[in-house]
Amino acid sequence: MEILIAQQRSELAKHQERLEAAQAAAAKFILDYDGRQPPGADGAEVKYLVGLDAIRDHLTVLNDQVAEELLTFAPGGPQKRENMQASRPLNQQLLRRGVQMRTVYLNSIRNDRPTMDHARWLTEQGCEVRTVPSLPNRMIIYDRKLAMIASNADDTAAGAVQVSSPGMVTALHSLFESMWQSAEQLEAPVHPAPGELTCQQAEALRLLALGHTDEAIAKRLAVSPRTARRITSSLMTHLGARSRFQAGVLAIQQGFLPSPTE
């Protein structure tokens, strides 16, 4: 058992190292590419926006220009009531123009009545809404031609990056479609069969196996640290694990997580 645990620890460490290397390479690529263009240059395929006011002003321009499709990742869990109310006229305007809208929220909105009421209102207007346990970042894709991404996933008001390179937009669109296909419809039941995990529990278990703290898991799932601790504690009890790492090993052995070799 000690040998197996050591092997699993090594594989998980390698997986985390590969993931961090890929993220660093992507960030470096964007920074290097942006450095080839002077700030604000016309035709630049990567453009930075700093501050919430600059982001809002730029989004207003893009919303006026979008013609066919608007795809959105909306992390952060339950939304602020004033923001939802303020967005309704714009959403109605876009849908009346025939813009197809699809939005992915986090599963945690299902525990917040105002956000669920707003999501149902969106579906009544013609927008498609689904939910997932976690999202990588805030993102909006316009007509599959350009994308807006938060420059800091932990502080989405700090700044944003606009990407218009066809290759990069295609990759981001593929990411959206992959998340959309795995997402749950808004009115879909989220209660698992006996012995199975909810999507939120499965994502928490994946993050737990990768070594994330309860605080980091809470941030990814957009739940309170107390809720995250309750989820991880129930998972360890469910698996019969005495440590967080053992929970990852047992999750692989019991089929809740894929083997690192798969």
Rank of each mutant, 00 (worst) to 15 (best):
V190S: 11
T227R: 13
T115P: 00
A86M: 04
M1F: 12
Q23M: 12
S233E: 03
G43Q: 06
L186Y: 03
L106K: 01
A193Q: 12
S243M: 06
A41E: 12
E187N: 15
M179Y: 14
L122E: 15
E184Q: 14
S10T: 07
S243H: 05
G255S: 03
E82N: 08
S233P: 00
P133T: 01
N83C: 04
N63Q: 13
T227V: 10
L62S: 09
F176W: 00
A44K: 04
V104M: 14
R81L: 14
C199A: 14
L210N: 08
T156L: 03
D64Q: 15
W180E: 09
T227W: 02
R226V: 15
K219D: 09
A54Y: 07
A27M: 12
L19P: 00
C199V: 01
A147K: 01
T232P: 04
S10Q: 11
E11C: 03
K145T: 11
D143P: 03
N63Y: 13
T198Y: 01
L70G: 04
N63W: 10
G159M: 05
H118A: 13
K80Y: 06
A24G: 09
T123I: 03
T123Y: 04
N107W: 01
K28C: 10
A158S: 15
M84S: 06
N107L: 13
E17Y: 07
I140V: 13
V223L: 07
T123H: 04
S243D: 09
A160I: 02
W121P: 00
A119V: 06
T115Q: 02
P133Y: 01
L59G: 01
N152T: 06
N107A: 13
P192Q: 01
G43K: 06
K28I: 08
G240R: 09
E11R: 12
Q37Y: 15
S165A: 13
A25S: 14
Q23T: 04
G51Y: 05
P194N: 10
G98I: 07
D155R: 07
G195E: 07
L49M: 05
P189A: 11
S182T: 09
R130C: 09
D112G: 01
I141G: 07
E2W: 06
Y33H: 15
A202Y: 04
I252P: 00
R230K: 15
T213E: 10
G159T: 09
M116L: 15
D53Q: 12
M116Y: 05
G40K: 08
Q92V: 02
P189Y: 00
V163K: 02
L19T: 08
T237L: 12
S233Q: 06
H212L: 15
L95V: 14
L235W: 09
G126Q: 12
P194C: 10
M139N: 01
E177K: 03
A222L: 02
L12M: 13
F29M: 10
T213V: 06
L4T: 12
S234L: 14
Q93R: 15
G248M: 09
G43T: 08
A67F: 00
Q185N: 05
S108G: 04
R220E: 12
D64E: 15
G35Y: 10
R81Q: 14
L208V: 11
H238I: 02
Q85V: 15
H118N: 14
S108W: 02
A44W: 02
E187C: 03
D32E: 14
F245D: 15
G51V: 07
G159E: 06
P194K: 11
L12N: 11
V132I: 11
A153P: 03
L235C: 11
A13F: 11
M116R: 08
V169Q: 01
Q125H: 13
G35H: 14
L197P: 10
